[in-house]
Design a protein around this nucleic acid. Structure first.
Lengths: 342, 342
DNA sequence: CTGAAAGCGCTAACAC
DNA sequence: GTGTTAGCGCTTTCAG
């Protein structure tokens, strides 16, 4: 025992110690059947003794596979993306893959660089929640040129026929808005998000639901924000309008949480005076000043689907037709849109 | 132009196209000076034309460096760790490193496997927020045997002389508890966390502060929890005690948020009847039912320090003495411990 | 300034 | 069952 506290142990070392060739060691390491039991035992003993670990890089060089999947997301701090990352990892880990996560920080230039780096690192596949706007074309071209399978998540370029996993954003907008209408609200404002695929989709659903119920709203009820802070600011502006909105549909939960803060600060009650709904069903929605009604977009499922698709794409040598998974959203009613008896 | 839509381009291809040897291409790629300007230009043109990208794996095999750093954390969903991940990435990215993040899910067996995998992948360094308990010894031994630099973060084994970056947890416990005492509370309960280094540290600070002010509390005021849900449950049990606590110090913000929920549900007011304080200053603390007073543990700084240390350790061939960075916590007072005029 | 030789650690493919 | 040969794409070393 003892020894081997330092310096990498190679198959060559095992081979020498066990009086066999490197090839035989390699076979044992990979679990090939055609090795004599006695030899195998001897080699395994040395492997354990010297604490040998196969050299992943060397193996990758010859096999052409790194068992690495790259994930590019706007921000790990959004629990939506953290949850997706986690669920992807959970699927691919047992298959021997590791995940390299890159923050693009909603910056399309940075995103491009990260993707290039991941390609240079020979990732076997790529999962992208792109910050590119309005078109993903450039990046996608480079990825395709590198012949690396990829899946788009959350944010989609409708012009591109690629694998995609996401939510039906229009349905989200419709669901949220219709819910508010059914709650009796008629002056429904929407704080929309970034100009990426989920943003316009939710907005379209909002507009659509209003139209369907023949409820007109002033343009001033549509206003943009990026996070809880700007959602808070945006809401202050909404509250100054005349007539004042009686409901606010936030692009996501953080924005809606900011809205709640602004509404309460202004002295209005939720849900009595103003109802608020968000999207995402983030973990803490239930703990907010007013427990937040929201639309669940099943982040975990998105990750699982994306992971399964990419793994399958890596495995298949033939060109597959693009797989598109669009999940249906789910309304979750909490106190912020509750029907309150006075 | 055109072509090269597929198949990897190698230096060999560039060399052939440019009528030079592979060596010269390699030199240009690496930016060596000893290449004739004309040759360099010619080669660069081909590189761009064929969209050549250096093969990271091959490069790693010969250089012995992967420019990859492994990060093992309990859960990416804890915003504390997400924030650390993000700040680490921000530091190492410009230096050419990529981060591989692994969730250990607070499972020491899984953690060990992940570390082994990262070692097999030849990571240049490792940053660990270990779930091992009570001692990190085993894992650390393996990492040291592999001769890979590593930094412990957040969770420490006091017996081990290793690089470490974290917060002064005892000071956190003292700060929180002393603050509650100064608010006039005398029946201060503590919901402690997992039995890892931060848990006992904070608890010790709590006990210490109470002792210093000669405030006795019944054993029943000390109770454990793991997340917001169990924090909620734990608080319900605390509220059933006689005498009822007039303050609750939660191990972290999620637990404290769960406590707030339970307290309000039971019909008590915060901060008038019961004050609550957490730790972590998570992003949404301000948006909770009652804005949560908390102790900031500067997650971003932890990540930055850890990143700097690991990069330095990777760079230096000599054995350095362990660097230990213990950050001092900061009290942030919000409404949950505010002195309210009746 | 340019290039030929050797090899990083490992594994296909094929002999023995 | 076992070992030999060749080579993955790149860089280090050293000749030209």
């Amino acid at each position: 025992m003892a020894l081997a506290t330092n310096s990498p142990v190679r198959q060559k070392d095992i081979a020498r110690e066990a009086n066999v060739s490197v090839m035989t060691v390699s076979k044992v390491v990979r679990g090939c059947a055609d090795v004599a039991p006695a030899t195998r035992r001897k080699i395994l003993a040395r492997i354990k003794e010297l604490n040998y670990r196969p050299h992943f890089v060397a193996r990758s060089l010859v096999s052409g596979r790194t068992f690495t999947i790259g994930l590019v997301i706007p921000d790990l701090m959004y629990s939506f993306f953290a949850e997706i990352s986690k669920s992807i990892a959970k699927v691919i880990r047992p298959l021997g893959y590791e995940l390299v996560i890159c923050n693009s920080e909603e910056d399309s230039k940075l995103e491009g660089e990260e993707i290039d780096r991941l390609l240079a690192r020979q990732v076997d596949g790529l999962i992208l929640a792109s910050a590119q706007s309005p078109s993903l074309g450039d990046v996608i071209n480079r990825v395709q040129a590198a012949n690396v399978p990829f899946v788009l998540i959350d944010r989609r370029d409708p012009d591109l026929r690629t694998d995609f996993v996401g939510v039906n954003n229009k349905a989200i907008g419709q669901l949220a808005t219709t819910h508010l209408i059914e709650c009796g609200c008629r002056r429904i404002a929407h704080i929309f998000g970034l100009n990426l695929s989920p943003g316009p989709g939710r907005r379209a659903g909002y507009v659509d639901a209003l139209a369907k119920h023949k409820i007109p709203v002033p343009d001033s009820y549509l206003i943009g924000a990026a996070d809880d802070q700007s959602g808070y600011e945006a809401t202050k502006r909404l509250l100054a309008l005349d007539p004042r909105p009686d409901a606010i549909f936030g692009y996501n939960d953080p924005i809606a949480a900011g809205a709640i803060k602004a509404v309460l600060e202004a002295g209005f009650r939720i849900p009595e005076d103003i109802k608020v709904i968000g999207v995402g069903n983030v973990h803490y929605s239930d703990l907010l000043r007013v427990p937040l009604s929201t639309i669940d977009q099943s982040s975990t499922l998105i990750g699982e689907h994306a992971a399964n698709i990419i793994v399958q794409a890596i495995g298949s040598k033939v060109k597959r037709r693009p797989r598109v998974v669009v999940l249906e959203p789910l309304l979750i009613v909490r106190e912020s849109t509750a029907a309150r008896s006075k």
